[in-house]
Write a protein that binds this DNA or RNA. Structure first.
Lengths: 203, 203, 203, 203
DNA sequence: GATGAATGAGGATTCATTCAT
DNA sequence: GATGAATGAATCCTCATTCAT
């Protein structure tokens, strides 16, 4: 009835949408820029230059450069962990789980960095998100291996090995045009399960 | 009569020694600082602050921050490559080669970063030295696997997988006090050769 | 309904004006500082210290110290050359031309450096602008002298002589309070036309 | 008789000679470097690099960079002033005096800067030496012109004009290979005496 | 006196962040 | 909320000068 109120409501809706759109634009730009230049070399101006916003606007959405980096990492972890968790709960055996998890990760990589000119700079195991993923993977591995796991088995090394494979094979995959997450995942899974000689014998 | 000359010579010797000591001190400090903070975040002042030298002195030894980073990388590559090469020439089979190479690499890591408060920041496969190592490993793998290597085998993924294991297990090893390069190497080799289930069953 | 727009427009106007004012303030300060200390000895901080701006602000207006020096030179040349050219086209005879040109130059000097604490550092004939002026003057002289100019006349020396007079007499003029560009110009013209004995005999 | 004493004396002589040679080497190098780069851009290391001495040695001979610049200026003035003075005392008329003085100055320029890759950076009338020369010339002019000089004649402008001619024509002369100090001097003298139209008519 | 490494103040420039509009 | 100019701390690097030998 009250057209003024209506306008206000419509207005509020539009604003909210603009806000969401800006936030996403900044995040996307930052994702690219951090991937290309690394956290330190990337400047806030590099980021906002890839949006149609002004430099000051950045600070309406993120408190600082560090904050957006953390947000980005949290966001990635946020999107990755439910997948990992789901796979863990669903998985009957090691192979199934590995296959699910790695495939999901590689698809995520392609989606996240596939169009970037550069590749993500990785500080191995340095960020909280990475630490979280490490522990998540370790726990899943331990649970799934169950009593196949000898008491003296070194689960930290074991997890590190599996992650190392996934990370580096994933990295190689991103180099290719077009990237083939499923093929790369199959490769990584077989490598992890049967060792290099098996993989060398061919897919 | 030659006492003056003698003194001059002694003097020259001392100076040369001081220079060598300073150079090594700066390199060591830089190694630490780069490892802890990464190239970009590390400042020249961070580096010289860990020596008892003045900021200007840095530039008597290295032309720039970039130069010392290159020197460090070159030095590491210089020390690593002959080892890799020697192992390749000596190795009879894959196991022997892997064992030699990874053990050497892990010992190198301990020596290089064992005392560092931090861990090396890794931009996967980004530096020329790293690229060179990648190719070196790929070539060695290809040669050693010989006709066990199926034609359609993907040697880039294969190399990436092996290096990923070595890198991440090595990284875990550095976390431990004291680090055990030989134990970690044994683990990595078995993982690479036989796959994760074999390792899970225990050493 | 357009009050918002109006404000935005007013705002834009004010900002533009502030920008123009700052730019001019920096240019004026630089003009002074370069004149007093010379390009090399002048520091960017010397320049901004004479404005009420912060050091970083300098770089919002000029890319570098070199850039502002070039801008200053270009600006001076820009203002001087059309005058010289106009005089050349208008001048009927040598005396008319000299009078016009030197008067214009002296007025320019007073305007440009009259309020400066120091005097311009001159690297004789070194900058492109100075070279351009030299050639401009030489060409004008050659044309105006016409067939009074003997074939073997050395126009480079001749131009140098005229410019030397203008420069140094102009310099003396700036020393005086208040400077008298027209009187000094009359003097310089007579000196150039009739030689020192004529001038010694009095104005 | 006492060979020890003899040796000591000979030794002292050699040392003195070495000192003089070093001092002269440093001065010569500085002359070149200042001429090529200007005072500010020239570094002490630029200077000593052109000798076979070590950087610290510079400070055994000159207290500072500024000091050697002053020494150089003083030295030039020292060598110029007696010549000017001699010419003044000898000169019968303006022409004779001008001819002597300018010829001497141009020869001095060739000797001083003839082999330099660059040309001297001139801050017009800025250094004490230049001021001294200015006053010297003004005084000479005044005396020689005698009663040809009208009371209201402006001797500062007059001197400035003459020096301007000498300076800029001298500068042009240094550009030529080989430089011709006598020809250039003849030109400058005629220009000063009879004005530009006379010179335009040819030598 | 000669040496040349060490010193540290100072210079140009960048950039995360603030804030008036 | 959006804007973009202003800010000044921090960075890399140079260089006049000192000093132990």
């Amino acid at each position: 009835m009250s057209s003024v109120t209506d306008i206000a409501i419509a207005e509020a809706g539009r604003r909210a949408r603009t806000k969401a759109r800006n936030q996403e634009a900044i995040l996307a730009a930052a994702r690219q820029v951090f991937a290309e230049l690394g956290y330190e070399a990337a400047s806030v101006r590099d980021i906002i230059r890839r949006t149609d916003l002004a430099s000051g606007t950045f600070y309406n959405y993120f408190r600082s450069k560090e904050a957006i980096a953390r947000a980005l990492a949290a966001d990635a972890a946020e999107r990755l962990r439910p997948i990992l968790r789901a796979e863990r709960d669903r998985a009957a055996d090691l192979e199934g789980w590995l296959d699910g998890v790695i495939r999901a990760y590689f698809r995520f990589l392609v989606e996240e960095y596939g169009r970037a000119a550069g590749l993500p700079q990785v500080r191995v195991d340095a960020t909280p998100a990475q630490r979280a993923v490490f522990e998540e993977v370790r726990e899943s591995l331990t649970r799934i291996l169950g009593d196949q796991l000898a008491p003296q088995a070194d689960t930290a090394y074991l997890t590190a090995g599996a992650i190392g494979i996934a990370r580096h094979v994933g990295e190689q995959m991103l180099r290719r045009a077009p990237p083939d997450p499923d093929g790369a995942a199959r490769f990584a899974v077989r490598l992890i399960l049967h060792g290099l000689p098996a993989v060398a014998r061919g897919a």
